[in-house]
Design a protein around this nucleic acid. Sequence first.
DNA 1: ATACTTGCAAAACATTTGCAGTGAG
DNA 2: CTCACTGCAAATGTTTTGCAAGTAT
Lengths: 135, 135
Amino acid sequence: MLRRTRQREAVLSALLQSGRSLTPVEICELAQGDVPRLNLSTVYRQIKLLLEGDEVLRVDLPGQATRYEAAVCDADVGDGTHHHHHFHCEACDRVFPIHACPGAMDRLAPPGFRVAGHELTLHGQCADCVGAKNG
Amino acid sequence: MLRRTRQREAVLSALLQSGRSLTPVEICELAQGDVPRLNLSTVYRQIKLLLEGDEVLRVDLPGQATRYEAAVCDADVGDGTHHHHHFHCEACDRVFPIHACPGAMDRLAPPGFRVAGHELTLHGQCADCVGAKNG
DNA sequence: ATACTTGCAAAACATTTGCAGTGAG
DNA sequence: CTCACTGCAAATGTTTTGCAAGTAT
């Protein structure tokens, strides 16, 4: 059975409040705002529990450290689709959710292939980093 | 410039002969059949070079160690664009190149974001596996 | 001969685990 | 009171790097 602990709340809260995907280290640093002595091990243990409970999603971008995000992101569309994509900022290395989708990808696959789903990752610079560079 | 070395051959050869995705450790063990003193560091260095030359594909399955496979793209288009995407077959676990691209992704990013590029991964079942299942 | 490559060891980074102490139920 | 959870340190696993020696061109 699962206990309700401050650490658990802090981890989930960090994920929810950030509104984006976080690495375990980022989660730990954020959550330490609530629980200063929070340990990375505990973050990993909570992530594992939260994954099993489908409260967080694993975000695995090729070549990047594994990140996690709250399963119930902002305003959840009621249409049943959690579908979204990611933007990876090459400057600050943060990952943002993108609630848009070009759709109709199925045509791209070779004939005979059955497309079950897709992942799209944009990369470049986020608004913050574009701003920092130009101004 | 790139030199043609026994280690480079051995790494590529291991990938080609196995016919599947391998972890760096697996590659190293296999390639040591050709070059006994082959080192893991060298495998990683060769992988990096081979990735840049599009001779090898990275296969990143969530929760598993990163694997690599030979990018034996038959008929390679000579139109100057190396841009392509990937299809991951959930049945046979192979990765295929897709020489098509929906394009115009830049609109999907939030305002202020600068999009430098994108990666698209389709997943489902390849023609072989669809055929094997139905017939 | 030149300088890209290699092998080895050690560093850097990511994730897990043992264990004694803490705290939720 | 119990037992799951926590913090810390140390183990494990993955990938990168410094450097002297090796080798393709």
